[in-house]
């Protein structure tokens, strides 16, 4: 086992060069370079964390904006609905009023026409009475030679007609 048999020969040389090797790694690499490398990693992690926070913030902002937009849209839609409803109501009332007016006018016309008809009927009836009285007076005169008073004839006719 050369590690044992050579020990006394190589020990000082081994220790010397090991001290140089370990010393260089410890002071130059482990204490000089490693902290810088770790600092890079830490800086990157901090950057990632802050980027994530910013992204989260932006997302919340966007969500709030979207909510606001949705609220605005909802209220606008409600407004529009109300406006159309009002317009519908107004136009319905208007139509109703117009229809009522027309109906009234028509009703008046009908009533007037009915009155005219009634008048014409009354007039015609009176005319018939007069014509009948004259005819009765004439017929009596011709048949009997008795002259009947116009008034009497009219009364008789009226009595006969109206029972």
């Amino acid at each position: 086992m050369p590690q044992l048999s050579q020990l006394s020969d190589v020990l000082v040389s081994q220790l010397f060069w090991l001290a140089i090797g370990l010393g260089f790694i410890f002071f130059v690499i482990a204490r000089g370079m490693v902290p810088k490398i770790q600092a890079t990693v830490d800086a990157r992690e901090a950057q990632i964390a802050s980027d994530l926070a910013a992204a989260d913030h932006a997302r919340k902002d966007a969500e709030a904006k979207e909510q606001a937009w949705r609220d605005t849209m909802d209220s606008a839609r409600a407004d529009a609905h109300k406006v159309t409803q009002d317009a519908k109501d107004v136009s319905a009332l208007d139509t109703e009023a117009k229809a009522k007016k027309s109906a009234d006018r028509i009703a008046r016309k009908v009533a007037a026409a009915q009155g005219k008809i009634r008048d014409a009927l009354t007039a015609a009836r009176a005319e018939i009475e007069a014509v009948a009285a004259e005819a009765a007076q004439d017929m009596v005169g011709r048949l009997t030679g008795v002259t009947v008073e116009r008034k009497d004839a009219a009364r008789a006719v009226k009595a006969e007609l109206h029972g």
């Binding site: 190589v10 000082v12 090991l18 090797g21 260089f24 490693v34 810088k36 490398i37 890079t40």
Partner: peptide, 26 residues
């Protein structure tokens, strides 16, 4: 103690390899 041996040589080679490897992280 300054006798330069094959062991010392390979310590330095290991050291150089570590150093070059770590340089890549700098």
């Amino acid at each position: 103690p300054f006798v330069f041996t094959n062991s010392a040589l390979w310590m330095l080679i290991v050291l150089g390899t570590i150093y070059v490897f770590m340089l890549g992280g700098m």
